[in-house]
Nucleic acid binder design. Sequence first.
DNA 1: TCCCAGGCTCTCT
DNA 2: AGAGAGCATGGG
Length: 282
Amino acid sequence: MFDYVFKNNNILIKGIENFDLPHTLDCGQAFRWEEKQNGVWYGVAYNKYLELEKLSDGTIVLYNTSEADFTDIWCDYFDLNRDYNEIIDAISTNDILKAAGSFGNGIRVLNQEPWETLCSFIISQNNNIKRIKGIISRLCENFGENMGNYYTFPSPEKLAGKTVDDLAVLRSGFRAKYILDAAQKVASGEVDLYSLNKLPIDKAREELMKINGVGPKVADCALLFSLKHIDAFPKDVWIKRAMQVLFDGELPKEALPYAGIVQQYIFFYARETKLNIDKVGK
DNA sequence: TCCCAGGCTCTCT
DNA sequence: AGAGAGCATGGG
């Protein structure tokens, strides 16, 4: 599906298809990636800093990393072992799905760190992407580990002992108490976050919803973006509108096995086109 | 000024 | 179980 070579501390990924960096890193599934300058992206995940770029011949370059980090972290993080062509073929029997897929071509669903993902999507509720990024950035700067040129995402253990007042610096509003409840339940093991990839999706969702401030949407984002449940289908305001306008409320059945991936195509399509509508319910 | 943002909790039927 | 207000903060 792809080949890679390790050379001068860079990983060169050859022959990878369906991997567009802006579509993947700036489509609202992850909040710590930014474009540095013409095509070079940088970000932090799994406590590691990474810069990457797509060359004109399609090669993806991961700069200043190790082969171990590539095989242990980035390969799975960027979902490199999934065949997106197979999915696109399967859903293309439906014209609208085909259009959405081609519009958001190259979106890959990242496999992010579960706690960071859960916490980030708790912050995302009733919020906008720009402000979500700001809050997460302040969260890392104030409570993460200083690694010199970047900060790690703070662990649940680190946050579990904090108070709402401690978190005031985040300016996260009413979400602060939710962040703390999540940190406490994950740190204590009351919610066994790191086992949820092995549970059936309904059980896993139920576990996540034990956390105050985690409802079906936030739970499904954690399940999809960090816990390998690609049939999770987070329904936010954009998706609800898009589902009404595009599909009369019902996801076409050919999309169900990959609902989460299709969700990303629809989300991207809906946001970029604004669906040429104002509002269709909420 | 009002409306909205990758929703959820709480309350009232 | 279903509807509706309220919620912190900031941008348009």
